[in-house]
Amino acid sequence: MTTTTQSRATPVASEAAERAAAAGGGVATRRRPGVRIPRPSGWSLIRLASILVYVFMFAPIAVVVLLSFNSSRFGTFPLEGFSFRWFEALWANDAIVSAFQTSLVLGFLTAIISTSIGIAASLAMVRYDFPGKGLINTALITPILVPEVVLGVALLLFLRWLSIPKSFLLLLMGHVLITLPFVVLVVQARLTAIKPVYEEAAKSLGANAWETFFRVTLPLLMPAVFAGMLFAFTISFDDVTATLFWKSGGTETVPTQIFAMLRNSISPEINALGTVMIVLTVSLPLIAGGLARWFARGGRG
């Protein structure tokens, strides 16, 4: 047995988690020095069970994609032939196209607003000490801890009482609320890792607070800004639980549109729509991960 000591505080865990959260991916895991721990017995059993969990997670998603290319009229097995007809049907369906537009605009605006608010809050939490900080820290993640149904009901009834009708604005405000804690968590984690010495250096060279922020802090923070925006966009784009309470009668987002279509039965069109959503939500983090790395290199490819 070697005597090499292993550093207890290896940040691999948090790095990996952040990577998963930011979905950057592809960065090689650092090899940890230390003893080679003997494999637990039953390792092959553990491996087999893990593979089964992967199958459990991916099989239903794979079947959605598979069935979306099935030419059968019912959207079910057996597979009859390869066809793009359900994707063409999607394109021709005005309700779905407009739901997509709504979701994209909503997600984009949510991401911008939520990330701006989140960056300011994170700066206060990481760079300053002030009374009541612990309480504020808890308050900032409260929207995660309150059941989403309750968020939906409370905001809806409150704004009704204020005579603010269901509208796109209500939807936007609600989505900012539910995405804010995630943005704050992601940005705070990154900001903690940026040493304040850079900002202090800028200040000592005569930069004011604004200049310091826009020319030093923000560029360093760019990966987290992207991760936060992406997080906010995805959560907004996917949300159905609270959105069903907030949307007005005529407005549908993609998830609520799917929900409405499901009321009849599962159609092959839903599978095609599912495939589009899957491709979109899976490729977005990858693109953003690439963009974040590009920015991390200083924006010069």
Binding site: F237, V240, F259, I278, T281, V282
Partner: peptide
Amino acid sequence: PFWISYII
């Protein structure tokens, strides 16, 4: 799958 729509 966490990224993939809950309703899907």
